[in-house]
Amino acid sequence: MKWGNDLSTFVEKFRQYLKPGYYDEFDYHWTMTIDLDRCTGCEACVVACQAENNLPIVGEKRYAQNREIKWIRIERYWEGEYPDVKMGFIPMLCQHCDAAPCEIACPVFATYHNQDGLNTQIYNRCIGTRTCAVYCPYEVRYFNWFTYTWDEPLEQQLNPDVTVREKGVMEKCTFCIQRIRLAKDNAKDDDRRRVRDGEVVPACVQSCPTEAMAFGDSNDPEAKVSKMMKDPRGYTVLEELNTTPSIVYLKKAHAES
């Protein structure tokens, strides 16, 4: 009886793949906008993410080996030479691409697109082929090269809503799915079918001192992100790859002179 079930779901899935616009039919489409004109590169989001998602303290040695784990990082790019030198910051986190290159890579479905338009990573399904990370053009997937530990009693600050990943597992930004889950849970308690705009705030967005980031459901035309996305400064990184990211950056504006 299970076989039949599986087969029918498989056939159904396959039909869905064939159908154009498969990716548009999600319950939600969680989207983030980042205004680079507000972003100062202060890295508050980096620590917020580290605190919320139990990112390990990897230590100096492993940092030197380029094995840090930072689900959100600030990339910096210099332009020009002294004295007309300019610095551009861009926070880089999982783009939750609708056409994600990583999702085709995983042989065991540890990463897939869920009905919320999230590019998900199931740590416990991961067998560590690391293909997803190789395929990811944004390089926002991080691998647990070791089992990381916390110096006692630092482990007491670990967030119980997020698991601690073991060695050999890929991890990445989840848009703080535990917060999305909590918001949906609350919505259910209130007999609401949908989560209200602004009810879900990932840790990085929550912390941002310049309010450069916004987060919400872009399927909802009234949501703040939907409005932000329409800003003429909006663009997505590496647009030419057609990964259709869920993160829209607003380009830094220039001073009128």
């Binding site: 299970k2 065991v108 399904r125 067998i127 082929t129 691998f143 647990n144």
Partner: peptide, 29 residues
Amino acid sequence: HLGRVWFVHWSFPIPNQMGLWPNFRSPLM
């Protein structure tokens, strides 16, 4: 190469109660 080689059998299409299949879109598959 694998990070968690002890779960390598997950990459084989073995029928299981969880209804989990490998990803047939994956070149690794």
